[in-house]
Amino acid sequence: MYQPIRSAGNASIALQSATSRLLDAVLDGLWGTALDALARVTGIEMLGSPFMQRAYLAAVCVAIVGPLVGVFLVHREMAMIGDTLAHSAFAGVAAGLFANSILAVSVPPIFTALVVAAVAALLVQTLVDYAGAYRDTSLAIVLTGSFAVGSVLITATDGGIAVGINAYLFGSLATVSRTNAGSLVATTAVVVVVVAAAYRPLVYVTFDEIGARAAGLDVARYNRLLAVLTAVVVVGAMQIMGVILVAAMLVIPVAASTSVTGFKRSVAAAVAVGQFATVAGVTVSYWYDVAAGGTIVLVAIASYLAVGARNRLRIRLNRGGTRTESDAETRAAVARDGGNGENG
């Protein structure tokens, strides 16, 4: 009777030490060494500080998974689901802090956030399945409902947990602990692998849902997968972005790169915009000691506007100069079919 329990305990200790060794290897061995070297070469001191190294690592991860999942949401006009799940993650954080203060247990709030957000994701999807077109309403109900639960839980205690909640609401570089950074790296790896494995079904469903069903896909299953992935991304990114702003990383980089032709290329472009926004945002927020999440979002919006302005300028220049043949062709075809389509 004794033996298996002890060996299970040993196994769990072995697993823990393996995970911590892996964390050391990734954080210090790989990332730390690389940024230390970069700090020496460039003379930028903050790159050498372990605190900033963790912040940059989190920034890079967030900017990979945000656009990677967001691209499927934006093109299905489900951008608001990110915001909804962020608010339910907030309820999860509040529940975790509440449980910790009342029940004297020690649950990481990030863990309860993940559980609550994942449940909310499935709830939203179920509501959408039943309510059909009333997607907006379903999202609004879950969004406000979760935030309501969160706010009630925070005020239900003597106010002690209200202090901790600020970091989750607005995000903070200081909340990125070693464990947080490690779990964010692991989350990123999982999300990338899952999206890569489900890439084709997700693209098909996004482009043409009815066609996807005719092609034999279980569309509801991929919708649920997408919702749960969104929950995972939101909770992962919440630490530096904050609950209120986290959805921006799912939406803005994608919006900034819709002018790139080719879906795969546009995903890559969205990740690139995300990287620029998060890395620049973290840097600026460190320099001026302002909120990281807000700075990142402002940089992302600035990139979005810059890309839009560049595209407009290019169109104007094209108009002034020689029109490409294919463009003229399309315009002619649109004009022709547009007139015809009405009476069909």
Binding site: V203, F207, D208, G211, A215, T258, S259, G262, F263, R265
Partner: peptide, 15 residues
């Protein structure tokens, strides 16, 4: 169908 999805003709046919 969705206009803003930056998918190309070839990508769509590959589906």
């Amino acid at each position: 169908t969705e206009d803003e999805m930056p998918i190309t003709v070839e990508e769509a046919v590959r589906m």
